[in-house]
């Protein structure tokens, strides 16, 4: 398989983060500035240039043991610095499914 870095030229349209799924349980995780992973989007390292995005992705991809399938995703950062998902897919990954489930199912 081609590494995510070779797949295409990296372009970003605005503030971005790197996200993946945690290896042991598949949970959604975000790459942090401290070179680790967090399930908390507010702890994600936000990059604003293609070069920085490439570096962050490259570092994330090197940590194949802990997380699977890293990629760059857009975020929105407001004036207070709060980070929010930049598209519906990422919103669903963060907040869970958008649908009511059958009553006895445990909530996400």
């Amino acid at each position: 398989m081609t590494s995510p870095l070779e797949q295409k030229k990296i372009k970003i349209a605005g503030p971005s983060i790197v996200t993946a799924n945690r290896t042991w349980d598949g949970a959604v995780v975000y790459r942090t500035a401290g070179h680790g992973w967090s399930t908390d989007l507010t702890e994600a390292a936000v990059v604003r240039t293609a070069d920085a995005a490439r570096d962050l992705l490259s570092e994330a991809a090197a940590d194949d043991v802990n997380a699977v399938g890293p990629y760059i995703a857009p975020v929105a950062v407001d004036q207070t610095g709060t980070i929010a998902p930049g598209n519906l897919r990422e919103r669903i990954r963060l907040d869970g499914v958008t649908i009511p489930l059958l009553p006895v199912a445990v909530a996400a």
């Binding site: 398989m1 799924n21 598949g26 959604v28 194949d64 699977v68 399938g69 897919r89 669903i92």
Partner: peptide, 21 residues
């Protein structure tokens, strides 16, 4: 690695989706 493992998990019906396996 995930590259090595992916085929093995797929052979056992394990996909990686948005939130989890």
């Amino acid at each position: 690695t995930e590259d090595e493992f992916k085929m093995l998990r797929l052979q056992n019906g394990v996909y990686l989706q948005l939130h989890a396996y």
